[in-house]
Structures are given as structure tokens and as C-alpha cells.
């Protein structure tokens, strides 16, 4: 009887340890899953980035009051140190980065190009934009005159080895920096080859690399972007067949994230210009 009691006790202990291990494993798996979700939200959670041609449009000339306000904000240049991050610099960036034309024809035009030239003259030699904490500085680069130095500064951010989180949801800023680098035109060419190797259909980093490659090495980029589009449509087709096999009838086969990657790839293909035409078949299939 004593022996039976010992065996039972040992058995209970083993069961208890096994149950403890199972609970621990479950908790660790759950935390791993949560970490993976959070990382995915940081890297791919942001909506589609609007390219410049979608942001700008008709505008009305600036009024005298608005021009005088522009002068006043531009004067902050003389009162704040540009070597360090400070509220004066941050406010000025936000002011001049504002999407003046977002309201369409009723919106005011941007401040005078002269203000942007002066800003570029001060900020770009300082290595700006550096580690952005919000979008204003990257939004502002869209309005400054393109230059080799600005392209170099943007490339530092666009190809950083780690995510550059901004905003309360901590979205990664690198894809936006890649789009801004693409808008530097010929000055972005030194990063074209690298972008070409990073084209991917399923991540925001991959689709923004596609835009950069299309803007810099369009002949090589267009077939690769078309291949990425084909990979997406084929995957959607497989999913459709699988769902139809189970339930029958037509189903939505693109999940929201896939749809956004699809828009980004389509826009990247269009960025390649005339080089995109012979490779546009996958886009036609998407329709």
C-alpha cells in the first residue's frame, strides 16, 4: 500500500509539472503571437501612402494675410537652433509641411518656393531629416527642391536596419522615406539597385522598394513588379478556389492588407512610366 501511495504521489507530481509546462507554453506562445502582431502592425499596418501626384491639385493664390504669416514663421529660422530638435523647429516643419492643397480647389496654394529653398539651404546640410518622430519632416522633404544631399539623407532613413516608429501606433517610417527618396528623381539612382533586390509583394517595405526601383531603374524594375503582382493574383486565385471548394459561390479573396499591397504595387508599376506598358498584363488580370 505504501508503495502504491508513493507511485500515486509521483504520478500526481508528474501530472502537475506537465500541466504547469502546458500553461507556461501556452502563455509563451500567446506572447510570441502578440509580439508578432505588434511587429506586423508597426511594419505593415499603415494605410496606402499617397504619392505626390495624388496629394497636390488645384489651389487658390495665397492672400496677403497668409503671405505675412509665412514670413513670420520663416523668421523663426533666426531665433531657433537648427542643430538640435526643439519646439520652434518642429512647429516650422509642421507649418511648411502642411498639405495646403488637400482641400482641393478651395485650398490655398503652398507658401512661396523661396521659403522652401531657404529651408533646404539650412536643413539639408545638417543631415536633416534625422530619425523622424513624426511625419512632418518627411512630408516637408516632398516640398523641398530635390538634391543629391537630400537624397543621401533620405536614404539613411529609407534603408535603416531597424524600424523607425512614429505616431501613437508606432508605424514604421522607412516605407514613407523610400517613397520620398523615389521622388528625388535622378538623385535617387545610387539606391536603385538595392531597391531592386528588396521588391516584395507582401510587405510595405517591399512595395515601397518597388516604387523606388521603378523611379530609378524602370527597365529592370517593371518586370519584377509585374512578377510580384502575378504572385499576388495567383495566391488570391488559389484562395478563391479553396473557398469555393468549401462553400461554393463567389467570395472576396483579397484581404484588406493584400488589397493595400496590391494598390501600392500597381502604383509602383505606373511609376516606371513607359517601361511598365509591356509588363502591365498582371494589372489587367487584377481587374
Amino acid at each position: 500500500r505504501e508503495r502504491f501511495r508513493k507511485v500515486a504521489r509521483a504520478g500526481c507530481l508528474v501530472l502537475l509539472i506537465a500541466a504547469g509546462c502546458a500553461v507556461l507554453w501556452g502563455v509563451l506562445e500567446l506572447r510570441k503571437h502578440q509580439r508578432r502582431d505588434a511587429a506586423d502592425r508597426t511594419l505593415n499596418g499603415e494605410g496606402v501612402i499617397s504619392p505626390s501626384w495624388r496629394v497636390s491639385g488645384d489651389c487658390r493664390p495665397r492672400t496677403t494675410a497668409e503671405r505675412s504669416r509665412d514670413e513670420a514663421v520663416a523668421d523663426l529660422l533666426h531665433h531657433f537652433d537648427h542643430q538640435r530638435v526643439n519646439p520652434g523647429l518642429g512647429y516650422k516643419e509642421q507649418y511648411f509641411a502642411w498639405r495646403w492643397r488637400i482641400a482641393g480647389s478651395s485650398g490655398s496654394c503652398s507658401p512661396s518656393p523661396e521659403h522652401y529653398r531657404r529651408l533646404a539651404g539650412v536643413l539639408v546640410p545638417l543631415g536633416w531629416p534625422k530619425l523622424p518622430t513624426d511625419r512632418s519632416d518627411l512630408e516637408l522633404t516632398r516640398r523641398l527642391p530635390p538634391s543629391p544631399a537630400l537624397a543621401r539623407n533620405l536614404a539613411e532613413l529609407a534603408f535603416a536596419s531597424h524600424p523607425l516608429p512614429f505616431g501613437p501606433l508606432e508605424y514604421d517610417n522607412r516605407p514613407f522615406a523610400r517613397i520620398m527618396l523615389a521622388e528625388q528623381g535622378r538623385f535617387a539612382r545610387p539606391w536603385g539597385r538595392r531597391a531592386l533586390t528588396e521588391i516584395a509583394p507582401d510587405t510595405k517595405l517591399g512595395t515601397s522598394a518597388a516604387t523606388l526601383a521603378a523611379a530609378t531603374v524602370p527597365q529592370q524594375a517593371a518586370p519584377r513588379i509585374a512578377a510580384a503582382l502575378t504572385a499576388m493574383t495567383q495566391e488570391a486565385d488559389r484562395r478563391r478556389k479553396r473557398i469555393e471548394g468549401l462553400k461554393g459561390g463567389p467570395h472576396i479573396v483579397y484581404q484588406l492588407r493584400d488589397g493595400e499591397r496590391l494598390f501600392e504595387l500597381a502604383d509602383a508599376l505606373a511609376t516606371a512610366g513607359p517601361a511598365a506598358e509591356p509588363h502591365a498584363e498582371p494589372l489587367g488580370q487584377t481587374f
Binding site: V48, A266, L269, A270, E277, A280, L283, G284, T286
Partner: peptide
């Protein structure tokens, strides 16, 4: 609209496919 605008920018067959799509 992203897809339609991209197809219009590319032109050719892509633009034709877009013109046939009900959502463009």
C-alpha cells in the same frame, strides 16, 4: 481608385482593362 489611376497612367491594355472595370 488607386488601381484605376495606375492603369490610366500606364495606358495601353491596362487602361482598356480599367475602362471595362465597373468600379473605375
Amino acid at each position: 481608385t488607386y488601381l484605376c489611376a495606375a492603369a490610366d497612367r500606364i495606358g495601353g491594355r491596362a487602361a482598356v482593362a480599367a475602362s471595362r472595370a465597373s468600379f473605375c
